[in-house]
Amino acid sequence: MRLSANLGFLWSDRSLPDAIRAAKAARFDAVECHWPYNTEIKDISDALAETGLPMLGLNTSRGDTSKGENGLSALVGREADARVAIDEALAYASALNVPNIHVMAGFASGQAAHEFFVENLTYACKNAAQHGITILIEPLNKYDAPNYFLSTTEQAKKVIWDVGLPNLKLMFDCYHVQLMEGDIGHRLEALLPLIGHIQFASVPDRGTPDHGELNYAHVFQVIRELGYIAPLGAEYKPNGDTDASLGWMKTLLT
């Protein structure tokens, strides 16, 4: 079982380059991040080269966070802003050899938002294909992100079907899926052909995966048996120091 440290939450008190170095020291196999745009590409690239870690994914910008925005690509009338965010993510991902971009939908609802999301994802996929990049969409749970456009895997399947391009995949976050739908094992099996990345955290507190209502020893075994071999994204919120939170790596993976 290989692991990717999500640096949006892990070592979030450090600069992104130093967080990459910390992930290497903790023996993660890869890293991923949320929004790297306040860090120079060269500084990130240097840290990745120094550690030998690949960066697996990053997100498009949330938009104007002072107004509570959480993505732009399903917001009708914000096409220019959505595509600027997509282009920005593509620039970082292509420069850093990042294979996945999570395109964030934002707070929206209705058929017009669906159609707008499909249009922007089509734009993202066609441009990403030129760099060998996969576009990801991720359902977010209604408790952490009420009114977020994408909330279930069934809705994500419909979006992927309507876009109809091979480099659009599902980000399967066990934490979000458990809160909204449950039945993690069967959903992983059914959705495996559509999955581009898997993330995990405890439920319901989004902490370390060694407690809560999901038995991750079992979930990880299911993932192994399905033949999924890409690194799994540890996207949990440490209760204090990240290094002190890593005991689960021994207890769950041995």
Score class of each variant (00 low, 15 high):
residue 72 L to D: 09
residue 78 R to Y: 13
residue 86 I to W: 07
residue 217 A to W: 10
residue 171 M to R: 03
residue 172 F to K: 03
residue 65 T to P: 00
residue 219 V to M: 14
residue 162 D to A: 05
residue 143 Y to R: 13
residue 75 L to H: 10
residue 251 T to E: 07
residue 95 A to I: 01
residue 74 A to G: 11
residue 30 A to W: 01
residue 61 S to I: 08
residue 187 R to A: 05
residue 197 H to D: 12
residue 53 L to Y: 14
residue 64 D to F: 04
residue 59 N to K: 07
residue 26 A to K: 08
residue 30 A to C: 01
residue 99 P to T: 00
residue 21 R to H: 09
residue 161 W to V: 08
residue 10 L to I: 05
residue 100 N to I: 04
residue 116 F to W: 07
residue 186 H to D: 12
residue 32 E to T: 09
residue 64 D to E: 13
residue 56 L to Y: 12
residue 149 F to V: 09
residue 126 K to L: 13
residue 45 S to Q: 15
residue 175 Y to N: 08
residue 174 C to Y: 06
residue 99 P to I: 00
residue 84 V to P: 06
residue 41 I to S: 11
residue 87 D to V: 06
residue 247 G to P: 02
residue 28 F to P: 01
residue 91 A to Y: 07
residue 205 D to P: 07
residue 155 Q to M: 10
residue 192 L to P: 05
residue 227 G to L: 01
residue 232 L to K: 05
residue 212 G to C: 11
residue 204 P to Q: 09
residue 163 V to E: 02
residue 202 S to E: 13
residue 42 K to F: 11
residue 117 F to I: 03
residue 76 V to Q: 12
residue 159 V to M: 00
residue 85 A to Q: 00
residue 29 D to M: 03
residue 62 R to V: 07
residue 145 A to I: 07
residue 230 A to P: 05
residue 138 E to D: 03
residue 215 N to Q: 04
residue 149 F to Q: 11
residue 231 P to R: 12
residue 59 N to C: 10
residue 7 L to C: 02
residue 147 N to Y: 13
residue 16 L to C: 03
residue 148 Y to H: 15
residue 129 A to H: 07
residue 126 K to Y: 05
residue 31 V to P: 00
residue 56 L to G: 11
residue 251 T to V: 11
residue 173 D to F: 01
residue 216 Y to V: 06
residue 242 T to R: 01
residue 21 R to S: 11
residue 177 V to R: 02
residue 122 T to W: 00
residue 123 Y to S: 07
residue 248 W to Q: 06
residue 19 A to K: 08
residue 180 M to F: 03
residue 205 D to T: 11
residue 40 E to I: 06
residue 89 A to Y: 03
residue 178 Q to N: 14
residue 143 Y to E: 14
residue 150 L to S: 01
residue 2 R to K: 15
residue 218 H to N: 13
residue 60 T to L: 01
residue 13 D to I: 05
residue 90 L to C: 07
residue 248 W to G: 05
residue 95 A to P: 02
residue 240 G to P: 00
residue 233 G to T: 03
residue 28 F to N: 04
residue 93 A to S: 08
residue 82 A to W: 00
residue 190 A to L: 12
residue 144 D to A: 14
residue 88 E to Y: 08
residue 87 D to T: 10
residue 214 L to T: 11
residue 221 Q to E: 15
residue 80 A to T: 12
residue 253 L to E: 07
residue 225 E to H: 14
residue 50 E to K: 13
residue 75 L to A: 10
residue 122 T to E: 01
residue 55 M to Q: 12
residue 15 S to H: 02
residue 95 A to V: 01
residue 224 R to T: 14
residue 156 A to P: 01
residue 222 V to D: 10
residue 126 K to D: 13
residue 193 P to E: 03
residue 231 P to H: 10
residue 58 L to F: 11
residue 20 I to Q: 03
residue 67 K to W: 02
residue 34 H to Q: 14
residue 215 N to S: 05
residue 123 Y to W: 07
residue 222 V to M: 12
residue 252 L to G: 10
residue 187 R to K: 15
residue 18 D to L: 02
residue 231 P to Y: 09
residue 4 S to N: 11
residue 86 I to E: 04
residue 250 K to D: 15
residue 174 C to N: 14
residue 211 H to D: 12
residue 60 T to D: 06
residue 133 I to C: 00
residue 87 D to W: 04
residue 129 A to R: 08
residue 89 A to R: 06
residue 75 L to Q: 13
residue 38 N to G: 15
residue 117 F to E: 04
residue 99 P to M: 01
